[in-house]
């Protein structure tokens, strides 16, 4: 079947099998490999991206279900050469080590701040609790999201 999914503002049309997962569409058809895959059971959250502005585990959704919808991935965070504060926050606060969970964590973190600009630590922890990080013990991920909350319009590009 043919689907057209707008990924980070660019329509991507592809002939796919109906069973193709959205995560595979994004990685293979759209060629954006920042969205990762880490489990068979929708537990890890390395695949989190946005569909129509809300976080979705893209291993849990068929590409066909996203036909005609807008997908935003980690590659869509940076705008005009300026990192999003959430990206800057992860750099400033050492919110990542191996980087595998990071895109998913940042997509969830950005969405949280868009909906709750000043979340408490408990709210942040709750919001990312559907995602696993094996490296950081979460403390610095929480700090990174807090940093982004405190620097909503950073334009300082240091990396």
């Amino acid at each position: 079947m043919e689907v057209t999914i707008t990924v980070n503002g660019t329509p991507v049309t592809s002939e796919i099998e109906p069973r193709k997962l959205l995560v595979h569409f994004v990685r293979e058809d759209a060629g954006l490999r920042g969205t990762h895959w880490g489990c068979d059971t929708s537990n890890c959250g390395t695949c989190v991206l946005w569909v129509d502005g809300s976080p979705v585990k893209s291993c849990t959704m068929l590409a066909a279900q996203a036909d005609g919808h807008e997908v935003t991935t980690v590659e869509g965070l940076e705008q005009g050469g300026v990192l999003d504060p959430i990206q800057q926050g992860f750099i400033e606060c050492h919110g990542l080590q191996c980087g595998f969970c990071t895109p998913g964590m940042m997509m969830t973190g950005r969405w949280l701040l868009d909906n709750n600009p000043n979340p408490s630590e408990a709210e942040i922890r709750d919001c990312i609790s559907g995602q696993i990080c094996r490296c950081t013990g979460y403390k610095n991920i929480v700090a990174s999201i807090q940093w982004a909350a405190e620097h909503p319009a950073t334009s300082e590009v240091t990396a």
Binding site: R33, G34, H36, L77, E78, L83, F90, L96, G99
Partner: peptide, 19 residues
């Protein structure tokens, strides 16, 4: 100091084997 490797990872530009 900030990590050198973060620049690629926060942009989704890491290069893992499946990539």
């Amino acid at each position: 100091m900030r990590r050198v490797e973060d620049a690629r990872f926060v942009r989704g530009q890491g290069n893992y084997v499946d990539d």
